[in-house]
Amino acid sequence: MTLLVAILVLAVGTFSLRIAGPMMRTRFELPERAEKVLAAAAVVLLAALVATAALTDGHGAAGIARPAGVLVGGVLALRKAPFVLVVVAAAATAAGLRLLGVP
């Protein structure tokens, strides 16, 4: 019974936090500078996530094949290539380099 109560409390808390953002958005107005900083922070956070995933494998370096694949995918994405092409080209680059024996 206590497990069910805990699940219900967590569900209500989660829903409350998720709905609070859109409901409070109209009550608070952020300065334009703060909005620009938040937008830049989102980009920096995403870039850090991509760099971490591309360059590390566990506690060590990922080698050369994975970062090369990410680089190919990033270049194609910047050139506005279709998403499927970006993913396939990045995977093919990493797989091809690994097939050739590049770590």
Rank of each mutant, 00 (worst) to 15 (best):
residue 45 L to P: 01
residue 30 L to N: 07
residue 19 I to H: 04
residue 5 V to M: 10
residue 15 F to Y: 15
residue 50 V to S: 09
residue 86 V to S: 00
residue 96 G to H: 08
residue 78 L to N: 01
residue 27 R to T: 12
residue 52 T to D: 11
residue 103 P to A: 13
residue 9 V to P: 07
residue 103 P to T: 04
residue 93 T to L: 01
residue 66 R to P: 01
residue 75 V to S: 00
residue 46 L to E: 06
residue 8 L to V: 11
residue 46 L to I: 12
residue 6 A to C: 10
residue 30 L to G: 06
residue 88 V to G: 05
residue 98 R to K: 08
residue 61 A to E: 12
residue 30 L to D: 09
residue 97 L to V: 04
residue 3 L to R: 15
residue 35 E to G: 01
residue 100 L to Y: 04
residue 24 M to Q: 13
residue 86 V to R: 00
residue 77 A to H: 02
residue 28 F to G: 13
residue 61 A to Y: 15
residue 11 A to G: 03
residue 7 I to A: 15
residue 59 H to V: 15
residue 56 T to L: 08
residue 16 S to E: 13
residue 15 F to I: 10
residue 68 A to W: 00
residue 77 A to Y: 02
residue 72 V to I: 11
residue 91 A to K: 03
residue 95 A to S: 05
residue 85 L to K: 03
residue 22 P to M: 06
residue 103 P to E: 13
residue 3 L to G: 14
residue 65 A to N: 10
residue 29 E to I: 12
residue 58 G to P: 13
residue 30 L to K: 10
residue 75 V to T: 03
residue 71 L to Y: 05
residue 67 P to N: 03
residue 39 A to D: 11
residue 85 L to I: 07
residue 75 V to C: 04
residue 84 V to K: 07
residue 53 A to L: 05
residue 63 G to A: 08
residue 22 P to Y: 03
residue 44 V to H: 02
residue 19 I to F: 06
residue 83 F to Y: 09
residue 12 V to N: 05
residue 59 H to N: 15
residue 70 V to L: 06
residue 18 R to I: 09
residue 79 R to E: 02
residue 60 G to R: 11
residue 61 A to R: 14
residue 86 V to A: 02
residue 89 A to E: 00
residue 48 A to K: 01
residue 5 V to I: 15
residue 10 L to F: 14
residue 33 R to G: 13
residue 61 A to T: 14
residue 99 L to C: 10
residue 71 L to T: 07
residue 56 T to P: 05
residue 39 A to Q: 13
residue 42 A to E: 12
residue 22 P to G: 11
residue 85 L to F: 11
residue 25 R to D: 04
residue 58 G to C: 10
residue 5 V to Q: 12
residue 45 L to M: 04
residue 19 I to D: 04
residue 61 A to P: 05
residue 8 L to P: 08
residue 42 A to Y: 03
residue 59 H to P: 07
residue 10 L to D: 05
residue 4 L to N: 10
residue 5 V to W: 12
residue 67 P to M: 03
residue 92 A to R: 01
residue 76 L to T: 00
residue 76 L to H: 01
residue 34 A to P: 11
residue 23 M to H: 14
residue 42 A to T: 04
residue 101 G to Y: 01
residue 100 L to G: 06
residue 30 L to F: 12
residue 61 A to G: 12
residue 39 A to N: 15
residue 66 R to W: 09
residue 34 A to L: 14
residue 31 P to F: 00
residue 6 A to R: 14
residue 70 V to F: 00
residue 94 A to H: 01
residue 91 A to D: 07
residue 34 A to Q: 07
residue 67 P to L: 01
residue 76 L to G: 00
residue 37 V to F: 14
residue 31 P to T: 07
residue 15 F to Q: 06
residue 19 I to E: 13
residue 39 A to S: 08
residue 3 L to W: 11
residue 69 G to Y: 02
residue 98 R to Q: 08
residue 63 G to L: 02
residue 85 L to N: 00
residue 91 A to N: 04
residue 83 F to S: 12
residue 29 E to R: 14
residue 14 T to W: 09
residue 39 A to E: 08
residue 94 A to G: 06
residue 90 A to G: 08
residue 32 E to R: 11
residue 37 V to W: 07
residue 13 G to C: 05
residue 75 V to K: 04
residue 30 L to M: 15
residue 102 V to R: 03
residue 33 R to H: 08
residue 65 A to M: 08
residue 101 G to N: 04
residue 1 M to S: 11
residue 73 G to H: 03
residue 48 A to N: 03
residue 23 M to I: 15
